[in-house]
Structure formats: C-alpha cells, structure tokens
Amino acid sequence: MTVGVKVVKAPEMTVWERLYLPMVFKGLAITFSHFFRKSVTVQFPEERPEYPYGSRGLHRLNRDSDGRVKCVACDMCATACPANCISIVGQPSPWPDREKMPETFEINLLRCIFCGFCEEACPEDAIELTGIHDFASDSRENMIIDREGLLAVYDKTAPSRPRRAGKTASEGASNVEREGSLHA
C-alpha cells in the first residue's frame, strides 16, 4: 500500500470520566455559568451591527457637483453585469460636457447578485454600491429600482462614501470614512 495508514486511537477515558456523572455535573456547571453572561443578540431593527468595511448592498447613482446625474448611459455596467439585471435607455444630454444621459436606468434587485462589477466597470464612477441591505418588499415590481430611486439612495447616503475612501476624487469634500453614518 502506497498510502501510509495512521491509526488514530481515541484517548482512553479515566475512571472519573467513565463514571459519567462527574462530567455531567461539569457540563451543568458550564451551562449554568452562561446564565449570567451578556447576550450576543443584536435586536436588529432597533440595533444595527457594525458591518464590515466594503460590504456590498444597495446601488446608488451618484450626482456631480452640479447635482446632475453622473451617468452617461455608456452601458458598460449593464455589459459587465453577470446577472443581467441592469437595463439602461439613453437619451441625448442637454449639457455640453457629455453626449448622453440615461432616460431610464433600472436595476432588478431580485436578479442582482451584488458582485460590484458594475461599480468596477463604470468609467464615470457614477454607480456605486452602498452598505444598505434591508430593502425587502412585498412585490416583485417594487424590487425594480429606477433612476429616481437610485438617485434618491445617493441623496440619502451622500456625502458618505459607500465603501472605498478616496475612490471618487471628484466628490472628495471629505475623506473621512463614514460607513457607520449610513445606518444612523
């Protein structure tokens, strides 16, 4: 046999351990000591846990310093999306500094896998993921978030940077990480 077989024997129990009852009382003592410990439960809707830095949640569409939507409807996020959950219809932009802006921008949150590829793909840093995760709904229709909804998420979460400090320099009024303030 080429494979070396190592026989592992269970450790012999002492008489004290084999009597079983002393060990039972030891176990009871352990569980009893837990009566007086602090509970680890987080009472969720009232209390919020500290989420890890960089956790990915609901998307937002960023605005530039003039309050216009940053997105130029290039469709790169929709192309990068592995779940195919982004659909963008572009229209000519009224502003001279860009050609297009999104007419509709919809994300199907039920299909989204929150991989963050859209954020990676975006050349304008227009789409970003926030740390918000509790956006359940009672209908499928409500789980499709549109342009206005995404902008509203920005309005709610700005000026905090959702996940990466210093990533979007154009916004950079402050470099303070404010992950926690998202949930405040």
Binding site: T31, H34, F35, R37, S39, V40, T41, Q43
Partner: peptide, 8 residues
C-alpha cells in the same frame, strides 16, 4: 435555553 446559549 436562550440564556444558556447567550441569547435573549
């Protein structure tokens, strides 16, 4: 059971 398992 909750208290023994550090729950509420």
């Amino acid at each position: 059971s909750a208290w023994m398992q550090d729950r509420v």
